[in-house]
Design a protein around this nucleic acid. Structure first.
Length: 246
DNA sequence: AAATTAATCAACCGCGACTGT
DNA sequence: AACAGTCGCGGTTGATTAATT
């Protein structure tokens, strides 16, 4: 048996029924709830309406410049993981972010992709523009050498197998990536700790966790067992995802 | 002013992941 | 291990509104 379930736009009355029900009884089972709430909707429709529209603190209205930047940055790393991107924007839903991307930002990102590579840098006299020293809030380091934009170089004289690089990603953002290479000869967990401490103090790791879904703290036994652990930092901006070695 | 086109965004659909049995 | 139910995600559609001709 099937009572024909309503589809399409929600009426104010339906909204009110759903809100009242959830306020009273909470969310316990989306597929069962509509019956009890007196709604001729399937659970999926109710869930969507609640999540994207009715839930308290859902932010409506124009996206700020800052929100745009976060979406662009995040998308350049995460791709179409709208939910992960939305999680960095309090009050915004994945649907909103996705819509905004398609209607406002996609063209801009595509344009970025067509931009020429950033200017060549002089290998013998490297500019700090894309280097670690210019990453905001990151500990200054004097250890690195042979800096060449876009290619690997020795990061730490004490850890010759560690490296970092800078690239311009597909969206035109400068991206800084660091890796710890354990080159098959296991050191101690302290070596790894030291490497990441020098590269990025703990407070910045916390920033990373706040800004990126899926970030895993490199200072762990797990990543130590993995011969390479890495993450990236947008120039002057966000610490970003763990990246596999290319 | 009317017709046409473009932009916007709420909502639907299919699918995969997860959980419980 | 297999199955069913549920949930959440991402791609897509379609109705409405705004802009343009």
């Amino acid at each position: 048996m099937k009572t024909d379930l309503k589809k399409g736009s929600w009426s104010a009355e339906e909204d009110q029924k759903l809100i009242s029900y959830i306020e009273k009884y909470g969310i316990w089972n989306w597929s069962q709830m509509p019956r009890f709430a007196g709604l001729s909707r399937n659970g999926k429709s109710c869930r969507l309406r609640w999540m994207n529209y009715l839930k308290p603190n859902v932010k409506r209205g124009n996206f700020s410049k800052e929100e745009e930047e976060i979406i662009l940055h995040s998308h350049s790393l995460l791709g179409n993981r709208w939910s992960a991107i939305a999680s960095k924007l309090p009050g915004r839903t994945d649907n909103d972010v996705k819509n905004y991307w398609h209607t406002h930002l996609k063209k801009r990102a595509i344009k970025h992709k067509k931009l020429p590579e950033k200017p060549e840098q002089n290998d013998t006299n490297p500019s700090p523009t894309y280097g670690l020293d210019n990453v905001e809030g990151t500990q200054q380091s004097t250890n690195h050498s042979n800096y060449v934009s876009g290619s690997w170089f020795t990061f730490d004289d004490d850890n010759p197998s560690s490296s970092c690089t800078t690239t311009t990603n597909d969206y035109g953002f400068d991206q800084f990536t660091a890796e710890y290479h354990d080159a098959g000869s296991p050191g101690t967990i302290d070596d790894l700790q030291l490497f990441w401490d020098q590269l990025c103090p703990v407070e910045n790791l916390e920033i990373a966790n706040n800004h990126l879904d899926g970030f895993s703290n490199p200072i762990s036994q797990d990543s130590y067992n993995d011969p390479i652990s890495s993450y990236s930092i947008f120039n002057n901006d966000y610490i970003t995802n763990i990246l596999p070695h290319p």
